[in-house]
């Protein structure tokens, strides 16, 4: 699927912000349809072949979480949530429910479009044979999923099995924000739900092996209060 043919649903109740988003999408050549309420969004989702949803969490009539939960029952379409700065908890909860990414108001058109592109790319990969690929690369960082090896600037770098699992998880979800909760569940299993300290330590160890300066990471970025993301270049 060509990302420029993607059909984007914009769910936003503030008229100015909706206009701004729609204009930005227009300028970039995305087809789009707008809804100003949760109910309206549902009607559109049922009737139209939407490829990506941009969802404001502060809707007047509908809980954004409920909408995400409903959509996830039948569709894997990328969902990008838009939230105010003081809605961190909602943000993390939305990602846990299956939203792909988030934007904090106010955002710029550049930021918005970049996120949409990443999300569409990720979704396209899921549908194509990306998962079949054995060697994946971001910048100078390479992972060989068959041999379970990691290369930094072409050099094979030794990592522990846990660190490898963590990095592999990020490569499988390249560009996507993974919440702390999701990572814990994937790496340690359901039983270790809240041991974030172990994750911080594991992440610190991995970064010291793949990043030049762990406090200025190039590959795995920290999304404060939410989780981590492997950059998609």
């Amino acid at each position: 699927m060509n990302q420029y043919n993607a059909y984007v649903l914009v769910v936003e109740d503030d008229k100015q912000i909706r206009n701004f988003i729609c204009y930005s999408l227009d300028a970039e050549g995305f087809k789009h349809i707008a809804a100003s309420s949760g109910q309206g969004a549902l009607s559109v989702l049922i009737a139209e072949p939407v490829d990506l949803m941009l969802l404001d969490l502060g809707l007047p009539d509908f809980d954004g979480m409920e909408l995400i939960r409903k959509v996830r029952q039948w569709s894997e379409m990328p969902i990008i949530v838009v939230s105010a700065r003081d809605q961190d908890k909602e943000k993390a909860a939305a990602l846990d429910l299956g939203a792909d990414d988030y934007l904090t108001k106010p955002f710029s058109a550049t930021e918005l479009l970049a996120r949409i592109r990443v999300a569409l790319r990720h979704s396209a990969r899921q549908n194509s044979g990306y998962r079949m690929q054995n060697v994946l690369q971001v910048g100078e960082l390479q992972i060989d999923l068959d041999k379970r090896l990691i290369y930094v600037e072409g050099e094979e770098t030794h990592v522990t099995p846990m660190e490898y699992n963590l990095l592999a998880l990020f490569f499988k979800n390249i560009g996507k924000v993974l919440t702390t909760k999701q990572i814990l569940k994937e790496i340690w299993g359901v039983g270790h739900g809240s041991d974030t300290q172990a994750l911080r330590a594991l992440m610190a160890g991995l970064r010291r092996k793949i990043e030049k300066n762990p406090a200025k990471p190039r590959y795995i970025l920290t999304e404060i209060g939410v989780g981590y993301r492997l950059v998609d270049e």
Partner: peptide, 13 residues
Amino acid sequence: RTPLAGMMGTAEM
């Protein structure tokens, strides 16, 4: 806050 975010977006547009 909300109208300001709208203004910023519109100005950027």
